[in-house]
């Protein structure tokens, strides 16, 4: 069976264009203009089967949102391949992407910024579908819109209102209805619950899981919250500084994390149920700048285990069985695993 989404060696670099003076540097007494490049995503590969939920976790600046938005083709990828149901869409222009948009939609993070404040709710929800069927089918679209609003827990009269009349959770429901309007097989959800209160967060997560069962949706779920990820994901990828450092089935990752960064994330996550097995890996320092990546392993500047090999050789993701892979030299030299 072809995967719903297949991503191979995805890279995303952004060229910063600050003023000339900021770029000016002197090397050996001669002026030079440096090109400032943010290495947001550095060769990420994964695939999502139909109906599967893959979560990407990591801290701010790890490139997880950029991966999402590059797959949704909000950004054009710098290199790598993106396939939707086997169809390579990496080079597609706007016209050829349109049919692909019916297979892949997106839910955004900020319930306030992701809805146009000057559009009525029913127009917001209908927008993706209208692009697919054309303005001729407006009546059908209107029926479908009402059904969608009802499905996500809103009602018909809500359709005539503007976004500012809704609470954060309700707005997120509107965003979900918009994404569902074209019956996509894949929904890319970029931190869909992180701006919501915890009680509302549970409502939205339950809705997303119900919709998955009902429509057989696959999710690419972006989050920084491990407890949310544990609840919703089938498989989890951990990102750091634009690299995928570990990927594993959910339970595997929580029970037997291998990469030191995954282990640190798990031990740092606050919990109201302190009974959890807790290996204490406390990280010092902060994430290096994506403008100049460290040599070798991206994590070595904060890793309590790092040794000289880590500065020279960049580890690649290697399969360690049971569907788990990690990019760490500790896998070759497990005897060093005691900080």
């Amino acid at each position: 069976m072809t995967a719903m989404l297949d991503v191979e060696g995805l890279e995303q670099r952004f060229h910063l264009n600050p003023g000339l003076l900021d770029r000016l540097s002197f090397e050996g007494g001669r002026p030079r203009l440096k090109d400032l490049v943010v290495h947001a995503v550095n060769g990420v590969s994964f695939s999502i089967a139909k109906g599967e939920v893959l979560a990407l976790v990591g801290e701010s600046g790890c490139g997880k949102s950029t991966v999402a938005k590059t797959i949704a083709r909000i950004y054009d990828p710098s290199s790598g391949r993106i396939r939707i149901e086997g169809e390579d869409i990496t080079e597609y222009d706007h016209a050829r992407l349109l049919p692909v948009r019916a297979k892949m939609q997106m839910i955004f993070q900020d319930p306030f910024a992701s809805l146009n404040p000057r559009q009525k709710v029913r127009d917001i929800v209908a927008e993706p579908l209208l692009q697919q069927v054309g303005d001729g089918a407006r009546a059908d679209v209107a029926d479908k819109t009402e059904a969608l609003l009802a499905r996500v827990g809103l009602n018909v009269e809500h359709g005539g209102r503007y976004p500012h009349q809704f609470s954060g959770g309700q707005r997120q429901r509107i965003g979900i209805a918009r994404a569902l309007s074209v019956n996509p097989g894949l929904i890319i959800a970029d931190e869909p619950v992180s701006a919501l209160d915890v009680s509302i967060q549970a409502q939205i997560l339950n809705l997303m899981m119900d919709l998955r069962d009902e429509f057989g949706l696959a999710y690419l779920f972006i989050s920084h919250d491990l407890s949310v990820v544990h609840h919703i994901a089938d498989r989890i990828g951990v990102m750091y500084l634009g690299f995928m450092v570990e990927t594993a089935p959910r339970d595997q990752l929580f029970v037997k994390p291998r990469h030191p960064y995954t282990r640190a994330l798990l031990s740092a996550a606050p919990s109201i149920r302190p009974s959890r097995m807790t290996e204490e890996i406390e990280l010092t320092g902060e994430v290096p700048s994506a403008l100049s990546l460290p040599t070798g392993c991206c994590f070595r500047t904060r890793c309590p285990f790092a040794w000289d090999r880590c500065a020279v050789e960049r580890p690649v993701l290697q399969d360690i069985g049971d569907g788990q892979s990690a990019a760490c030299h500790l896998i070759d030299e497990p005897e060093r695993d005691n900080p």
């Binding site: 938005k69 948009r101 939609q105 900020d110 992701s114 965003g175």
Partner: peptide, 10 residues
């Protein structure tokens, strides 16, 4: 994000 959503909508 609503402009990005419009892009995703096609």
């Amino acid at each position: 994000e609503y402009v990005q959503a419009a892009r995703v909508a096609g």
